[in-house]
């Protein structure tokens, strides 16, 4: 329920489902200031008003309690919250050590359906141009 006096708001934001390469048209429902659901875009040229179960649920991960919102670094058996500077330093050290010892193809990069196209582009660029491997994959292919 909305707070008293808050402005009424319901709108649909057209977007593209991130879960696979098909590119189905989804409408993200916003109620108040909250992402509240997903509808199929009826006249979308790809999906023509239909979605699979992933498309219908595409809004759900945004508020998931299991979503990581802060960087964590593993220390022994446990994950410890840290800042981005320290987290990225740990990643760089780990990747460099693996590449220097076993070669660039000892490293793999796993992109994500929950990132933007541009973020995924940057990840494969890092893999190919910086580390020197074509080991790039994505959860949508599985």
């Amino acid at each position: 329920m909305a707070e008293n006096g808050s402005e009424m708001n319901y709108r649909l934001v057209p977007s593209t489902c991130v879960y696979c390469g098909t590119g189905c048209g989804v409408l993200l429902e916003v109620t108040g200031d909250r992402l509240s659901g997903t509808l199929p875009q009826k006249d979308h040229p790809v999906s023509k008003g239909a979605l699979c179960i992933k498309g219908w649920s595409v809004h759900e991960f945004v508020y998931s309690e299991r979503r990581l919102t802060k960087p964590m670094v593993r220390s022994g058996e446990v994950l410890v919250e840290t800042d981005w500077e320290a987290a990225l330093a740990a990643v760089a050290d780990g990747l460099s050590a693996a590449r220097d010892k076993h070669g660039p193809d000892s490293v793999g990069f796993f992109a994500s359906a929950r990132c933007t196209n541009e973020e995924n582009y940057l990840l494969q660029k890092l893999a190919r141009a910086v580390v020197g491997t074509n080991n790039v994959d994505h959860c949508a292919r599985l």
Partner: peptide, 9 residues
């Protein structure tokens, strides 16, 4: 170009 539900206040 796409006709969508909308709430006008």
């Amino acid at each position: 170009g796409t006709v969508l539900p909308a709430l006008i206040t």
